[in-house]
Amino acid sequence: MELKKDKLTEALLLLRGASNVILPVSNDGAPVFKLWDGVAEPCLSANTSLPPKDLLFPRSEKMYDYNVKTGNISEISSNKKQTVFGIRPCDVRSIENLDHAFLESGYTDSYYKTRRDGLTTIALACTETARTCFCDSMGLSPNDAPGADIVLNDRGDAYTVKSNTEKGEEITRLWKSLLSKETGKASKASGSVVCDFKARADKDLPEKLVARFDDPMWDKLSKACLGCGCCSFICPTCYCFDIGRENHGASGTAFRCWDSCMFSDYSRMAGGHDPRPSKKERLRNRYLHKLAYFNLRYGVTLCVGCGRCVDKCPANLDVTRAMDIISEGVRADG
């Protein structure tokens, strides 16, 4: 099936009738995910600078209201139907990874689950890659998003539409009048995109990383790190949060908000002891989580190779450099 590009707006309006539609729109030329107003032109030229993870895991999220006098606790949940359009294969995989952490770790996070159940993903395969992209090194393909409900492939004047799930089928039914048979000729080469950059993500990388926990290379790798939370907050797969409370007399609200393992108060314990006192330990933990711990637990690499942290790091640190060093078994200064 395919969807002609001139029917895209119509297709989006149909979606908008059934749920909130979130898609990338231009913000000073850079695409950002926004709630679609039905008018704005989708900006699909490049991936967004911020990932769409806050659709499922907002930066701040109210959890429950309470009153200590009455003992009342009322849970706050959001069960809005949301459809995200134009999400890239790397970000689709990041949602699968978040699912592992929030739904399959032995505890089901109800806040996440409600949002996840209401979310439909319409992925758009990449037609070109940015220079920081390395998703195909991480076991993904920029040409397909098997975890998305629908995958669109740009074929020049039309998108091929492939549905992967029941939610996807629902949308193809919704779009029925707009879809046509595939013509077979593609004027624009999509489906054969490769990332220019290759990271060294060998199969034994997790074991190698863990084995080099005490390696002096971590000192070297972390020296230029500023210790800010930029990489965590723009990462599509960072899911750490902190829980806080806002009190007003007897009543209050509990909320959770994003936290970063690069912050000094992240691993500080009640007595003041911090097992990760400096940026060396914090950076090591972050890299190991992305490239080793998650693998060992869930069998997939948490890092999806979107390259956002490589692009935005104020000190121009590069996670792939650590991967190279480990894979080649060289010392950091070698």
Partner: peptide, 24 residues
């Protein structure tokens, strides 16, 4: 603002041993 505190961490005038913003 995503409150990553990169502005603080890079600033030579922000040299407190512990920042008030980390003491929630």
């Amino acid at each position: 603002c995503i409150r990553c505190y990169a502005c603080r961490n890079v600033c030579p005038a922000c040299n407190c041993r512990e920042c008030y913003a980390d003491m929630s």
